[in-house]
């Protein structure tokens, strides 16, 4: 078998290769999924499938349609940024048919509130935190706080209720005996509307100098510096952290 002067071996191999190639092309045409390549190198159908998965969290807008009273309360409270399902759990089934599912109603102490409000040093400072075993032990949180409007029933008696991190830091420092008021003046309103009435902070080196200056009227064990020569270009708290002063 010799065609157009091409060697017999090559002709036979070419036929075999053509058969294999033809079968491959035919199989490919038969099996490539129909929607493949419509919008890119993937099955366009897969996008639809992904978009049609069931929803479990309904989103808080729909809750307000029935629970407008709680919603009204919550929207003016410190919890205004929370959606209902943070505490009540996924409730899309309930939103669909209110009898189909009973959303969670956490009432017991520590069931939901402590997930956010138990003191952890890694939490951002200023976020309201309590130390659970010291904060009205055994009382359920909802006994005193309405979760839809969690403003403390009494004005917090200590700064530590919100500033737990500072309190804890100070407690292990040389400044443990100082009260917050030694350095900060806080208007009583700060306890009710903290962000509208910010406490003040010391502004001059003399604030620390009251105890730490050479001639200060304070205990002999307190370290002294000469305010004129000790780092005169800086304010004290630019190098030292007053809540945990470095030795």
């Amino acid at each position: 078998m010799k065609l157009w002067g091409i060697a017999d071996q090559v002709v036979r191999l070419a036929i075999l290769l053509a058969i294999v190639g033809g079968v491959t092309v035919a199989l490919r045409a038969r099996f490539v999924p129909p929607s493949f390549g419509e919008t890119g190198h993937y099955r366009a159908e897969a996008v639809t499938i992904a978009a049609e998965l069931p929803v479990r969290y309904a989103g808080s807008e729909i809750c307000a349609e029935c629970h407008d009273d709680q919603e009204e309360l919550r929207r003016r409270s410190y919890h205004r940024g929370l959606s209902c399902e943070v505490c009540h759990g996924a409730a899309a089934a309930h939103a669909e048919d209110f009898e189909a599912q009973q959303p969670l109603v956490p009432r017991a102490r520590g069931e939901a509130c402590l997930a956010c409000h138990e003191y952890l040093p890694s939490r951002p400072t200023g976020f309201p935190q309590i130390i659970e075993r010291l904060h009205n032990p055994l009382e359920p949180c909802v006994g005193c706080h309405d979760p839809h409007d969690p403003t403390p029933p009494e004005v917090p008696s200590s700064c530590a209720a919100c500033h737990a991190q500072i309190e804890r830091t100070k407690a292990v420092s040389h400044h443990l005996a100082l009260t917050c008021e030694t350095c900060h003046e806080a208007a009583p309103e700060h306890r009710i509307e903290p962000r509208s009435h910010l406490p003040n902070k010391p502004t001059a080196r003399e604030a620390c100098g009251r105890c730490h200056a050479e001639g200060a009227d304070s205990g002999a064990e307190i370290p002294r510096v000469d305010l004129d020569t000790h780092g005169p270009r800086y304010l004290c708290w630019q190098c030292h952290y007053p809540h945990h002063p470095e030795a």
């Binding site: 992904a50 978009a51 069931p54 929803v55 969290y57 989103g59 940024g81 943070v86 976020f127």
Partner: peptide, 23 residues
């Protein structure tokens, strides 16, 4: 993670964003 593709395509937020208490 799909950014909760089935939620964002119908105007909802991804579940993690929906429940984040501090924004």
């Amino acid at each position: 993670c799909t950014f909760c593709y089935h939620r964002i395509t119908q105007g909802l937020l991804p579940a993690c964003v929906e429940v984040c208490p501090t924004g």
